[in-house]
Design a protein around this nucleic acid. Sequence first.
DNA 1: CAGTGGTCTAGACCACATT
DNA 2: ATGTGGTCTAGACCACTGT
Lengths: 252, 252
Amino acid sequence: METLFRSDVALGLPLYREVKHKLMEALRDGEWKPGETIPAEKRLCERFGVSVGTLRKAVDELTAENILIRHQGRGTFVASHSQDRYMFGFFHICPKVGHKEYPTVEFISLEKEKADGDSARRLGIGKGTRVVRIINRLSLGGKAAIIDDILLPERYFGGMTADQVRERHTTLYQLYQDEFGVAVLRTEERLEACGANEQIAGLLGIDEGTPLLHIVRRAMTFRDEVVELRHSYVITSDYEYYAGEEAMRVGE
Amino acid sequence: METLFRSDVALGLPLYREVKHKLMEALRDGEWKPGETIPAEKRLCERFGVSVGTLRKAVDELTAENILIRHQGRGTFVASHSQDRYMFGFFHICPKVGHKEYPTVEFISLEKEKADGDSARRLGIGKGTRVVRIINRLSLGGKAAIIDDILLPERYFGGMTADQVRERHTTLYQLYQDEFGVAVLRTEERLEACGANEQIAGLLGIDEGTPLLHIVRRAMTFRDEVVELRHSYVITSDYEYYAGEEAMRVGE
DNA sequence: CAGTGGTCTAGACCACATT
DNA sequence: ATGTGGTCTAGACCACTGT
């Protein structure tokens, strides 16, 4: 196939990366929504003027990043947030003995605040920018085990109300997706140990100073823009944090 | 190309997975040692009787798992443990502010013991099996920050001596590789918060009960056999654990 | 220069899902 | 039967590395 010009943004990039970039743009622009199929490979090849192999290499990378999901015989789908996906890819707490279970979520509060310096830096916004702050209590095995302290930039989540958060029967990431059109694509987590302060101890019904796992999670959407900053405080007497590939482990 | 029979272990597996399996076997058998190049793609295609595309797909997976490393123009190399690789892929503690630094390691003790029930289970060996136990103290920024309590099955590390561990100027994984022919291919980590007990507090020079990050790491070699069980106790006032893909993050 | 891996093509056939 | 993704081939050309 004769290649005359290769796109306006081809800075020596391999062709399949250009294609990947264009797919990302289309996804970001909402051309295909979460849960929908994208066009068949053959059609996409025509659209981008590349061969199957090249198109597949672009899609390969997007599936490896859990942005697209392929189903043989059915099509290629835009990844959608669900309870299962949350458990598999974003919730890293599991019991030391026994099987992983979904936490019971109890809404505590929703407030509008101004971001302090540290939060603003982590969110990539200016200090003092307005944010939504949500506090939840999560229970595992019937016992309060985790406090989630969540900050959301108003830019993405302006009209969020307490009722929206309280009445939902989905994960928060589904709420972001369905009500605000925000797709969480990946997260990054940093962990430390801390002693429970007065507020957390009260919410969890434990003694002040009890060792807790403190997780700082940043959730990113397209272009690596941060859309959520979450502090989780976890009682780790019966549960632990699992750092694993989860994905891969395919076969020898 | 005419395919008559496809290997003795072809249980409906794709051809490229068979090839991957055979490459793994050759690596496990030491046909190519860490740091060496494996034969050029063309030669491997002849050896396995497959086309380049198929061979490449097998090698792609092995490079994604950090078992092989490709260098354009130079060849494909068997991954070898080095200080840099340890920092990049296995040492997940970094300062809350500033750049990642390599820890100073101080040898505390090496003993031969019998594995208790919990350790034996995690190592995949029988209770009471003999193991080597190493304790190290790691310092960051000049201050003691981590205690490593390491268990190694005697099956792999029988003749290990305190001098071997004390006198080395490499990472432990390099020692496993160079002196015992054991290749650590991947690790799995579980984290919890705990209060420092008397022994750990003493070794770290902190108060008993200080909240610490407790990391339980299992290191695996070929066939997912566990070759190391490591308990790390980390002071997280200035440092934190980073859970990240590290790899990927390739490009939009 | 020769040799290596990196990209790309064009097309065949297979396996699976749906109609 | 049709359409989807999954595998595989055979070969071309490019980019990088070392001699």
